[in-house]
Amino acid sequence: MFSVKSDVFSFGVLLLEIVSGKRNRGFSHRDHHHNLLGHAWMLYKEGRSLEFVGDYLGVSGYLSEVLRSIHVGLLCVQQCPEDRPSMSWVVFMLGNEVVLPQAKQPGFFTERDLFIAESSSGTNAPGSINQMTMTLMEAR
């Protein structure tokens, strides 16, 4: 069952995907194992949000709008649904020069580290592979 706040979360993910030019699903970075939301959050906390934009040389005339979009996207994906803005407030924040509240850690902020997960199991055996069998029914 979806709610208004989950729709806001989805919009925030979409906004961050558009700004970065990358998809959240399957995102990888050479310096860490965060997903796209984690990458945006990390750069935001370090004051380096502009690095989130793939080719930021072409957006030099729109830097404030791009930074505002990243900030609003992070506000939309905050972990607690109560902290997320309403869609009407999102539209207002994107279209007006208002002071934005500080973003909090996003929900579904994951760090994928497969090497540590495998070594912590205590065995060197490879993990199981899920297999799927399909049965096709044919009429006589």
Results as ranks from 00 to 15, higher is better:
L136M: 13
T133P: 01
A139H: 04
T133C: 07
Q131G: 02
R112E: 10
G127S: 15
D113R: 03
M132S: 06
E111F: 10
N124T: 13
S120A: 04
I116T: 09
A117G: 00
A139L: 08
G122S: 02
G122D: 01
A125E: 13
P126A: 11
A125F: 04
L136P: 00
G122I: 01
N130P: 04
I129V: 15
F115Q: 13
T135W: 03
T123W: 01
F115R: 03
N124S: 11
S121T: 11
T123V: 11
Q131D: 06
F115A: 11
T135H: 05
T135S: 10
R140D: 15
T135P: 00
I116M: 07
E118G: 00
T123P: 01
A139F: 05
E138T: 13
A139M: 06
M134Q: 14
I116A: 11
S120W: 03
A117T: 07
S120T: 07
G122M: 00
S119T: 13
T133L: 15
M137S: 13
M132T: 09
G127E: 15
E138H: 09
L136T: 14
T123S: 15
A117N: 02
E111L: 14
T123C: 06
R140K: 12
R140N: 14
D113F: 01
T123K: 00
S128D: 14
N124F: 10
A125T: 12
L114Q: 09
L114T: 04
M137P: 02
F115I: 07
A139K: 04
P126Q: 13
G127D: 15
G127F: 15
D113Y: 01
I129D: 05
N130T: 08
S119H: 03
E111H: 12
S120F: 02
P126W: 02
A139W: 03
N124W: 05
L114N: 04
M134W: 11
M132Y: 05
S119M: 10
S121E: 13
N130F: 00
S119P: 01
L114P: 00
E111C: 10
P126D: 12
I129G: 01
N130S: 12
S128W: 06
N130D: 06
R112N: 07
M134E: 12
L136H: 05
Q131C: 08
N124H: 08
M137I: 14
A117M: 06
S121Q: 11
S120C: 03
A117S: 08
T133K: 07
I129S: 10
S119G: 00
R112P: 01
P126R: 08
E118Q: 14
N130C: 03
P126L: 05
T133E: 14
S128N: 12
Q131P: 00
I116H: 07
T123E: 04
E111Y: 12
N124R: 14
R112L: 11
A125S: 12
L136G: 13
M132E: 07
T123H: 05
A139I: 05
E138S: 09
L136R: 06
S120Y: 01
N124V: 07
G122H: 01
L114C: 02
S121Y: 02
E111K: 04
E111W: 09
S119D: 03
M137W: 14
T133I: 15
E118V: 10
G122Q: 00
A117W: 05
Q131S: 10
F115Y: 05
M134V: 15
R140I: 06
A125C: 06
R140S: 15
L136K: 09
A139Y: 04
A139R: 09
S121V: 08
Q131A: 12
